[in-house]
Simulated scan of single mutants.
Amino acid sequence: KEKNITYLFIAHDLGLVDLMCHQVAVMYLGNVVEWLEHGRIAEQCKHPYTKALMGAVFKVDFKPGEKIEPLEGEIPSPLDLPPGCPFASRCEHCTEHCVQVKPELKEVEHGHWVACHMFD
Rank of each mutant, 00 (worst) to 15 (best):
Q44I: 05
C45K: 01
C45L: 04
C45T: 12
H47C: 02
H47G: 08
P48Y: 05
T50C: 00
T50P: 13
T50Y: 01
K51N: 07
K51F: 01
A52T: 06
A52W: 04
A52C: 08
L53I: 12
G55D: 06
G55M: 03
A56T: 08
V57C: 06
F58I: 10
K63M: 12
K63H: 08
P64E: 12
G65K: 12
G65H: 04
K67E: 15
I68P: 00
E69H: 07
P70V: 10
P70Q: 03
E72F: 04
G73W: 02
G73P: 06
G73E: 00
E74G: 10
I75E: 02
I75G: 05
I75H: 07
P76L: 10
P76K: 11
P76Y: 08
P76G: 03
L79H: 11
D80Y: 13
L81N: 11
L81Y: 10
C85Y: 08
C85Q: 09
F87C: 09
R90C: 10
R90F: 00
R90Y: 03
R90A: 14
C91R: 08
E92W: 06
E92D: 13
H93R: 12
H93L: 13
H93T: 12
C94G: 03
T95P: 02
E96F: 01
E96R: 14
E96L: 04
H97N: 04
H97D: 04
H97S: 01
C98W: 01
V99F: 03
V99D: 00
V99Q: 12
K102R: 15
K102A: 15
P103D: 11
P103R: 00
L105Q: 02
L105A: 09
K106R: 14
K106C: 01
K106D: 11
E107I: 03
V108E: 14
V108R: 03
G111H: 13
H112Q: 15
H112W: 10
H112T: 14
H112N: 13
H112C: 10
W113D: 09
W113E: 08
V114R: 05
A115G: 08
C116G: 03
C116W: 08
F119R: 00
F119W: 14
